[in-house]
């Protein structure tokens, strides 16, 4: 049962991702992205990470809605459909893809010796939400807070670069 569910969600994730990069219509791409993210949410649920599942759906559905708005507002759909879809660098991308597959193959061959024991998915041991809070606010408190500074700088930088220069009065 678990395996069947896993493959279903994994297939949804992959199919959505493929649709995102191969469709010509940006709206279809955004729809594909939603499916891909939903598949990931399902995979989280299989790992008994209910909070991550809920957050994934809440945040990303909101995020993709904003993406839809941008697509409709900023992109001329007819023009976008006529643009060349792949740049001339596609052989490089293919080579990179090949490298990744080679890597996976080598890893599978080596049987991954000497890895640290993987943590068992703890079903409600101490509570899912509490464990996430524990790593965010205790174990990784500094990077978590520093990330907010990073986002602030990114916003300031983006606003600065996007704003037109004030005309002298």
């Amino acid at each position: 049962m678990d395996a069947a569910l896993f493959y279903t969600f994994a297939a949804i994730t992959l199919a959505g991702a493929l649709a995102t990069v191969t469709r010509r219509n940006p709206v279809h791409c955004a729809l594909g992205l939603i499916f891909s993210l939903l598949g990931v949410a399902g995979l989280f649920l299989l790992q008994a990470a209910e909070l991550l599942f809920a957050v994934q759906i809440l945040l990303y559905v909101g995020g993709v809605m904003v993406l839809f708005l941008f697509v409709i507002m900023l992109i001329h759909l007819e023009q976008a459909a006529r643009l060349r879809q792949y740049s001339r660098q596609w052989p490089v991308a293919l080579a990179a893809l090949f490298a990744v597959f080679l890597e996976i193959y080598v890893l599978a061959q080596s049987g991954l010796p000497g890895l640290p024991p993987s943590p068992q998915p703890r079903l409600n041991a101490g509570g899912n939400t509490e464990r996430i809070a524990d790593s965010l606010f205790y174990v990784y408190a500094l990077p978590f807070e520093a990330a907010s500074l990073l986002l602030l700088i990114a916003i300031v930088g983006a606003v600065w670069l996007a704003r037109k220069k004030e005309q002298p009065q």
């Binding site: 990077p143 990330a147 500074l149 990073l150 700088i153 300031v156 930088g157």
Partner: peptide
């Protein structure tokens, strides 16, 4: 710690992009 240094690196980099 890996995450700390990575966030630090990104803070530096994003400031420099702007």
């Amino acid at each position: 710690e890996l995450i700390t240094v990575f966030i630090g690196l990104e803070i530096t980099a994003v400031s420099f992009y702007s």
